[in-house]
Simulated assay, not measured.
Amino acid sequence: MENRRSLSQPLLSSTSAAPTTPTSPNLSNHAVLLRLLLVAVVGLTSLWANHEASKGFDITILNNAKGSSAGQRFDLFYVSNDEATRLLLNASNFIQNLIYPSQDLPKKIIKSVHLTLSLRDLSSNVAVEQLDGGVDFAVHLSPSIFNDTNMNHAMSTAILRGMSRVWLWNGEGHAPPSLLDGMVEHIVAAAGFVEKKYSGGAVGTLAACEPMWWKDKDPMEIATFLDYHERQGEGFIQRLNQALRSRWQDRTVDNVLGLPDQRPCGSFNTSGSL
Score class of each variant (00 low, 15 high):
residue 212 M to G: 00
residue 60 T to C: 08
residue 203 V to P: 00
residue 47 L to D: 12
residue 171 G to S: 05
residue 262 Q to F: 14
residue 260 P to E: 13
residue 73 R to Y: 03
residue 23 T to R: 07
residue 248 W to G: 09
residue 133 G to E: 03
residue 182 G to N: 10
residue 146 F to N: 06
residue 94 F to A: 02
residue 6 S to Y: 04
residue 209 C to I: 08
residue 41 V to G: 01
residue 135 V to C: 07
residue 251 R to F: 04
residue 22 P to A: 12
residue 121 D to G: 05
residue 88 L to T: 03
residue 65 A to S: 15
residue 194 V to P: 06
residue 234 E to L: 07
residue 66 K to I: 11
residue 187 I to V: 14
residue 118 S to M: 09
residue 196 K to P: 04
residue 261 D to I: 14
residue 220 M to S: 10
residue 90 N to S: 08
residue 118 S to H: 08
residue 22 P to V: 10
residue 166 V to F: 04
residue 73 R to S: 12
residue 182 G to D: 09
residue 248 W to N: 09
residue 101 P to Q: 05
residue 256 V to H: 02
residue 148 D to N: 10
residue 245 R to E: 14
residue 161 R to E: 15
residue 131 L to Q: 14
residue 250 D to V: 15
residue 248 W to D: 13
residue 143 P to R: 06
residue 242 Q to P: 03
residue 62 L to N: 15
residue 134 G to W: 10
residue 247 R to E: 15
residue 50 N to V: 13
residue 31 A to T: 02
residue 159 I to W: 01
residue 267 S to F: 02
residue 233 G to A: 11
residue 187 I to N: 12
residue 10 P to Q: 12
residue 249 Q to T: 13
residue 26 N to G: 03
residue 95 I to P: 00
residue 138 A to T: 14
residue 135 V to E: 13
residue 17 A to V: 09
